[in-house]
């Protein structure tokens, strides 16, 4: 069950134009830096992206965006990226904006084999358009569909050769659910250890969800808003 590949370049073998990918991360926190850069280098086109955010102008998904590699984005918050806002307002990019909790649950449901479910978020707003509405316990809800992707690209702190993953602090965010929602899940980790070394009590993502894993290099871990008390 050794799932280790050499690097990001080897990890993305088979990814082709027009594929749908999920990318973990919240802002720039916990994004799969190595794999995104490999997609940039491989120049894969017409990608549909499912990601909470769209990176910043010159980092993360923002790199693919500037190179016009993205056809469509499904996200919840895309501020702090001028090129994104420009492409969206000028109609160069298809964008589905989804409430963050609904996005998270759609991904969780997709990975868990749940095709649809009901949530209150978005009732009475433009998010409701085209959706089934039902009342439960006196409150209105929208039907939302589970989401899956051809590939899920996740970033973890530690991982083992079987694909078990542990995240650090708030760098978990969307990574954990996305790992289960990718037909092929590629995990990049800061520390890669032999299986058996991670304490099973602390695994966030069981290895069953991960198909390829590699040790990432040269992590920049950019901070979007450095805010300090001194």
């Amino acid at each position: 069950m050794n799932k280790v590949v050499k690097d990001a370049k080897e990890a993305i073998i088979g990814m082709s134009d027009g594929c749908t990918i999920m990318l973990g991360g919240f802002g720039l926190c916990g994004i799969p830096e190595n794999t995104i850069n490999a997609l940039f280098d491989a120049d894969i086109q017409n990608i549909t992206c499912i990601s909470n955010n769209a990176g910043v102008d010159d980092w993360g998904l923002g790199r693919l965006l500037r190179k016009h590699q993205l056809k469509r984005i499904i996200a919840s918050y895309v501020g702090e990226n001028k090129e994104f806002e420009r492409q969206l307002l000028e109609g160069e990019l298809e964008v589905d904006l989804i409430p963050q909790g609904t996005l998270a649950e759609r991904i969780r449901a997709g990975g868990a084999g749940i095709p649809a479910f009901f949530v209150p978020a978005g009732y009475g707003t433009e998010v409701q358009e085209g959706k089934e509405v039902r009342e439960f316990n006196g409150k209105m809800h929208l039907m939302e569909m589970g989401l899956t992707a051809d590939y899920a690209l996740v970033k973890a702190w530690k991982g083992d050769t079987h694909g078990n993953l542990i995240y650090r602090a708030t760098a978990n965010n969307f990574n954990n659910m996305m790992a289960a929602a990718g037909k092929i899940t590629i995990a990049e980790v800061e520390e890669l250890v032999p299986f058996g070394e991670l304490d099973p009590n602390y695994i966030h993502t069981p290895g069953v969800y991960v198909q390829r894993i590699f040790k990432g290099v040269d992590y920049e871990k950019r901070i979007e808003f450095l805010t300090t008390s001194d």
Binding site: A75, S76, E85, P99, V127
Partner: peptide, 11 residues
């Protein structure tokens, strides 16, 4: 004019 997204506000 401005589209940043709803983030978690709707939820």
């Amino acid at each position: 004019k401005m589209v940043k997204g709803m983030g978690g506000a709707m939820d």
